[in-house]
Protein backbone atom coordinates (compact mmCIF):
# COMPACT_ATOMS: atom_id res chain seq x y z
CA UNK A 1 0.00 0.00 0.00
CA UNK A 2 1.24 3.48 -0.81
CA UNK A 3 -0.02 6.19 1.48
CA UNK A 4 -0.57 9.64 0.00
CA UNK A 5 -0.55 12.02 2.91
CA UNK A 6 -2.43 15.28 2.57
CA UNK A 7 -2.46 18.37 4.74
CA UNK A 8 -6.15 17.83 5.41
CA UNK A 9 -7.40 20.69 3.21
CA UNK A 10 -9.59 20.20 0.20
CA UNK A 11 -6.86 21.50 -2.13
CA UNK A 12 -4.51 19.00 -0.54
CA UNK A 13 -6.99 16.23 -1.14
CA UNK A 14 -7.54 17.04 -4.81
CA UNK A 15 -3.78 17.36 -5.31
CA UNK A 16 -3.43 13.87 -3.91
CA UNK A 17 -6.12 12.61 -6.27
CA UNK A 18 -4.09 14.06 -9.11
CA UNK A 19 -0.91 12.33 -7.96
CA UNK A 20 -2.41 9.03 -6.93
CA UNK A 21 -4.95 8.44 -9.64
CA UNK A 22 -2.91 5.96 -11.68
CA UNK A 23 -1.52 4.13 -8.65
CA UNK A 24 -3.55 0.98 -8.00
CA UNK A 25 -1.98 0.63 -4.56
CA UNK A 26 -2.85 4.15 -3.51
CA UNK A 27 -4.44 5.00 -0.18
CA UNK A 28 -5.22 8.68 0.32
CA UNK A 29 -5.46 10.03 3.84
CA UNK A 30 -4.95 13.16 5.87
CA UNK A 31 -1.67 13.23 7.74
CA UNK A 32 -3.50 13.52 11.01
CA UNK A 33 -5.22 10.15 10.83
CA UNK A 34 -2.81 7.73 9.26
CA UNK A 35 -2.37 4.19 10.53
CA UNK A 36 0.64 2.45 9.04
CA UNK A 37 1.60 -1.17 8.90
CA UNK A 38 4.85 -2.83 7.95
CA UNK A 39 5.96 -2.43 4.35
CA UNK A 40 3.78 0.56 3.50
CA UNK A 41 5.24 3.33 1.40
CA UNK A 42 4.68 6.99 2.20
CA UNK A 43 4.27 9.83 -0.24
CA UNK A 44 3.91 13.30 1.12
CA UNK A 45 1.59 15.17 -1.19
CA UNK A 46 2.44 18.72 -2.05
CA UNK A 47 -0.66 20.88 -2.13
CA UNK A 48 -0.77 22.68 -5.44
CA UNK A 49 -3.78 24.75 -6.29
CA UNK A 50 -3.61 24.33 -10.06
CA UNK A 51 -3.47 20.58 -9.76
CA UNK A 52 -6.46 20.59 -7.48
CA UNK A 53 -8.27 22.90 -9.87
CA UNK A 54 -7.70 20.55 -12.79
CA UNK A 55 -9.13 17.65 -10.84
CA UNK A 56 -12.13 19.70 -9.83
CA UNK A 57 -12.81 20.71 -13.40
CA UNK A 58 -12.65 17.14 -14.59
CA UNK A 59 -15.06 16.01 -11.87
CA UNK A 60 -17.55 18.74 -12.70
CA UNK A 61 -17.54 17.56 -16.29
CA UNK A 62 -18.51 14.08 -15.13
CA UNK A 63 -21.19 15.24 -12.69
CA UNK A 64 -22.14 18.84 -11.94
CA UNK A 65 -23.00 17.92 -8.35
CA UNK A 66 -19.80 15.97 -7.71
CA UNK A 67 -17.95 18.73 -5.88
CA UNK A 68 -20.90 19.52 -3.63
CA UNK A 69 -21.26 15.87 -2.69
CA UNK A 70 -17.55 15.47 -2.11
CA UNK A 71 -17.36 18.60 -0.02
CA UNK A 72 -19.88 17.08 2.36
CA UNK A 73 -18.08 13.75 2.34
CA UNK A 74 -14.76 15.40 3.18
CA UNK A 75 -16.30 16.90 6.31
CA UNK A 76 -16.59 13.43 7.76
CA UNK A 77 -14.20 12.61 10.57
CA UNK A 78 -14.55 8.87 10.18
CA UNK A 79 -11.56 6.74 9.31
CA UNK A 80 -10.96 6.27 5.62
CA UNK A 81 -12.84 9.38 4.53
CA UNK A 82 -10.30 10.55 1.97
CA UNK A 83 -9.87 7.07 0.59
CA UNK A 84 -13.64 6.67 0.25
CA UNK A 85 -13.77 9.95 -1.63
CA UNK A 86 -10.87 8.84 -3.79
CA UNK A 87 -12.53 5.55 -4.73
CA UNK A 88 -15.75 7.38 -5.49
CA UNK A 89 -13.82 9.71 -7.79
CA UNK A 90 -12.22 6.76 -9.55
CA UNK A 91 -15.64 5.29 -10.23
CA UNK A 92 -16.91 8.66 -11.41
CA UNK A 93 -14.01 9.33 -13.76
CA UNK A 94 -14.06 5.76 -15.02
CA UNK A 95 -17.74 6.08 -16.02
CA UNK A 96 -17.45 9.67 -17.15
CA UNK A 97 -20.97 10.48 -15.95
CA UNK A 98 -22.95 10.62 -12.68
CA UNK A 99 -22.70 7.39 -10.69
CA UNK A 100 -24.90 8.25 -7.73
CA UNK A 101 -27.56 5.72 -8.72
CA UNK A 102 -25.13 2.80 -8.89
CA UNK A 103 -25.85 1.64 -5.39
CA UNK A 104 -24.68 -1.90 -6.02
CA UNK A 105 -21.18 -0.48 -6.58
CA UNK A 106 -19.43 -0.63 -3.17
CA UNK A 107 -17.44 2.59 -3.71
CA UNK A 108 -20.62 4.50 -4.52
CA UNK A 109 -22.65 3.02 -1.71
CA UNK A 110 -19.92 3.66 0.82
CA UNK A 111 -19.47 7.29 -0.22
CA UNK A 112 -23.21 8.00 -0.15
CA UNK A 113 -23.50 6.26 3.19
CA UNK A 114 -20.82 8.48 4.70
CA UNK A 115 -22.42 11.58 3.20
CA UNK A 116 -25.74 10.57 4.73
CA UNK A 117 -24.12 10.34 8.18
CA UNK A 118 -22.62 13.82 7.91
CA UNK A 119 -25.95 15.24 6.80
CA UNK A 120 -27.72 13.41 9.57
CA UNK A 121 -25.50 14.94 12.18
CA UNK A 122 -26.04 18.40 10.72
CA UNK A 123 -29.79 17.83 10.82
CA UNK A 124 -29.59 16.61 14.40
CA UNK A 125 -27.78 19.72 15.51
CA UNK A 126 -30.41 21.98 14.04
CA UNK A 127 -32.31 20.59 17.04
CA UNK A 128 -29.61 19.86 19.62
CA UNK A 129 -27.75 23.15 19.50
CA UNK A 130 -28.43 25.29 22.61
CA UNK A 131 -28.00 29.03 22.78
CA UNK A 132 -27.30 31.11 25.87
CA UNK A 133 -28.04 34.81 25.84
CA UNK A 134 -25.98 37.63 27.29
CA UNK A 135 -27.20 41.05 28.44
CA UNK A 136 -26.71 42.53 24.97
CA UNK A 137 -28.98 39.94 23.41
CA UNK A 138 -26.12 38.05 21.76
CA UNK A 139 -26.62 34.29 21.55
CA UNK A 140 -23.83 31.79 22.01
CA UNK A 141 -23.91 28.03 21.33
CA UNK A 142 -20.96 25.72 21.99
CA UNK A 143 -21.04 22.21 20.56
CA UNK A 144 -18.73 19.37 19.78
CA UNK A 145 -19.88 17.51 16.68
CA UNK A 146 -18.33 14.35 15.26
CA UNK A 147 -17.99 15.88 11.82
CA UNK A 148 -17.01 19.29 10.55
CA UNK A 149 -20.55 20.59 10.10
CA UNK A 150 -20.36 24.12 11.47
CA UNK A 151 -20.70 25.86 8.12
CA UNK A 152 -23.62 23.61 7.17
CA UNK A 153 -25.51 24.78 10.25
CA UNK A 154 -25.02 28.51 10.06
CA UNK A 155 -27.43 29.25 7.19
CA UNK A 156 -30.20 27.45 9.05
CA UNK A 157 -29.80 29.62 12.13
CA UNK A 158 -29.30 32.79 10.13
CA UNK A 159 -32.73 32.21 8.60
CA UNK A 160 -34.25 31.35 11.92
CA UNK A 161 -32.81 34.19 13.97
CA UNK A 162 -32.82 37.13 11.58
CA UNK A 163 -31.42 40.30 13.05
CA UNK A 164 -30.08 38.53 16.13
CA UNK A 165 -26.31 38.35 16.52
CA UNK A 166 -25.10 34.87 17.38
CA UNK A 167 -21.99 32.73 17.77
CA UNK A 168 -21.72 29.01 17.17
CA UNK A 169 -18.60 27.44 18.54
CA UNK A 170 -17.17 24.09 17.45
CA UNK A 171 -15.15 23.24 20.56
CA UNK A 172 -13.46 20.28 18.95
CA UNK A 173 -12.08 22.18 15.97
CA UNK A 174 -11.68 25.53 17.73
CA UNK A 175 -13.74 27.18 15.05
CA UNK A 176 -16.36 29.77 15.66
CA UNK A 177 -19.03 31.18 13.37
CA UNK A 178 -19.72 34.82 14.05
CA UNK A 179 -23.00 36.22 12.80
CA UNK A 180 -24.15 39.82 13.16
CA UNK A 181 -27.74 39.03 12.23
CA UNK A 182 -27.23 39.50 8.52
CA UNK A 183 -23.92 38.01 7.45
CA UNK A 184 -21.40 35.66 8.96
CA UNK A 185 -17.72 34.80 9.02
CA UNK A 186 -15.62 32.11 10.61
CA UNK A 187 -12.86 32.68 13.08
CA UNK A 188 -10.46 30.73 15.24
CA UNK A 189 -11.85 30.64 18.74
CA UNK A 190 -9.59 32.40 21.19
CA UNK A 191 -8.89 31.25 24.70
CA UNK A 192 -9.25 34.45 26.62
CA UNK A 193 -12.64 35.72 25.46
CA UNK A 194 -15.52 35.26 27.89
CA UNK A 195 -19.23 35.03 27.43
CA UNK A 196 -21.28 36.16 30.39
CA UNK A 197 -24.91 35.05 30.36
CA UNK A 198 -27.60 37.55 31.28
CA UNK A 199 -29.31 37.16 34.68
CA UNK A 200 -32.49 36.12 32.89
CA UNK A 201 -30.69 33.36 31.04
CA UNK A 202 -30.49 31.18 34.10
CA UNK A 203 -34.18 31.55 34.82
CA UNK A 204 -35.28 30.53 31.33
CA UNK A 205 -32.82 27.67 31.36
CA UNK A 206 -34.25 26.55 34.66
CA UNK A 207 -37.81 26.66 33.29
CA UNK A 208 -36.65 24.61 30.33
CA UNK A 209 -35.17 21.98 32.63
CA UNK A 210 -38.41 21.86 34.58
CA UNK A 211 -40.41 21.59 31.40
CA UNK A 212 -38.24 18.73 30.21
CA UNK A 213 -38.73 16.91 33.48
CA UNK A 214 -42.50 17.29 33.60
CA UNK A 215 -43.26 16.50 29.98
CA UNK A 216 -41.74 13.04 30.40
CA UNK A 217 -44.24 10.21 30.77
CA UNK A 218 -42.66 8.41 33.70
CA UNK A 219 -45.08 5.49 33.40
CA UNK A 220 -43.47 4.49 30.14
CA UNK A 221 -39.71 4.62 30.54
CA UNK A 222 -37.64 3.94 27.45
CA UNK A 223 -34.12 5.18 28.11
CA UNK A 224 -32.62 3.08 25.36
CA UNK A 225 -34.72 4.85 22.79
CA UNK A 226 -33.70 8.21 24.22
CA UNK A 227 -30.01 7.37 24.05
CA UNK A 228 -30.36 6.00 20.54
CA UNK A 229 -31.96 9.18 19.29
CA UNK A 230 -29.84 11.54 21.36
CA UNK A 231 -26.41 9.96 21.90
CA UNK A 232 -24.79 10.60 25.27
CA UNK A 233 -21.76 12.26 23.67
CA UNK A 234 -24.03 15.15 22.68
CA UNK A 235 -25.35 15.73 26.21
CA UNK A 236 -22.55 17.92 27.41
CA UNK A 237 -24.09 21.10 26.07
CA UNK A 238 -27.75 20.23 26.67
CA UNK A 239 -28.89 22.01 29.85
CA UNK A 240 -31.76 19.56 30.32
CA UNK A 241 -29.28 16.70 30.60
CA UNK A 242 -27.07 18.49 33.10
CA UNK A 243 -28.54 18.98 36.49
CA UNK A 244 -25.87 21.46 37.50
CA UNK A 245 -26.32 24.72 35.69
CA UNK A 246 -24.22 24.43 32.61
CA UNK A 247 -23.52 28.04 31.88
CA UNK A 248 -20.50 28.45 29.66
CA UNK A 249 -17.92 30.81 31.14
CA UNK A 250 -15.07 30.91 28.71
CA UNK A 251 -14.24 30.09 25.14
CA UNK A 252 -11.82 27.23 25.13
Amino acid sequence: MTYYLTDGTSDGFYSAVFDAYADKEAFVTAKSRIQLSFGDRLVSVETIEEKAERVRKKLTLCDVHALDDLSILLRSSEDGTEQAAFLYIRELVHRGRPVKGRLAEPAVFDALDRIARVKEEAHRFTGFLRFTENSDGVLYAPFSPDHDILSLLVPHFLKRLPGIPFLIHDKKRHKIAVCDGKTYTFAVACDSATFVPSPEQEEWENLWKKYYRHVNVALRPHEKQMRGSMPVRYWKYLPEKNQRNSVPKIFK
Binding site: V215, E223, M226
Partner: peptide, 12 residues
Protein backbone atom coordinates in the same frame (compact mmCIF):
# COMPACT_ATOMS: atom_id res chain seq x y z
CA UNK B 1 -36.83 18.79 14.00
CA UNK B 2 -36.42 17.03 17.33
CA UNK B 3 -34.82 19.27 19.91
CA UNK B 4 -34.52 16.77 22.69
CA UNK B 5 -35.63 13.32 23.78
CA UNK B 6 -37.18 12.55 27.15
CA UNK B 7 -36.46 9.36 29.11
CA UNK B 8 -39.72 7.90 27.78
CA UNK B 9 -38.06 7.94 24.36
CA UNK B 10 -40.29 10.66 22.94
CA UNK B 11 -39.05 13.53 20.84
CA UNK B 12 -39.45 17.05 22.20
Amino acid sequence: ICHSFTPDGRCV
